[in-house]
Amino acid sequence: MGEKLRITLGAVSRPLESLKIKTGDWGAEYPVVIEENCKACGDCVVYCPDLCIELVETGEVDEKGRKKKVAKVNYDYCKGCGTCSVVCRHDAIKMEIKEIYKG
């Protein structure tokens, strides 16, 4: 006995169910944030087509007493397009080849 297929009225879908699709395994490359270069300008956040970069607090405080932030990539969804590394004006994101694609 298989499980019943649940279908909705007129194929209405629930919001944001795409989040269960982990697209992080699509690409051959992945971005690495060089935290000491990151100015938390947010460019990578704005450009990322996969909405998988956010600015997070480092726990440190800068010279003006503001909480330091840095770009953080959610690798569950990153497709490795490299847009973030291209738009970064501070050389704070470099692309690396995934281990399995090396050699």
């Binding site: 795409s18 989040l19 269960k20 699709i21 697209t23 699509w26 087509p49 996969d50 969804y77 490299g82």
Partner: peptide, 9 residues
């Protein structure tokens, strides 16, 4: 949301 099917880039 993330997880959409767009091509990388």
């Amino acid at each position: 949301g993330s997880g959409h099917g767009a091509c990388p880039g």
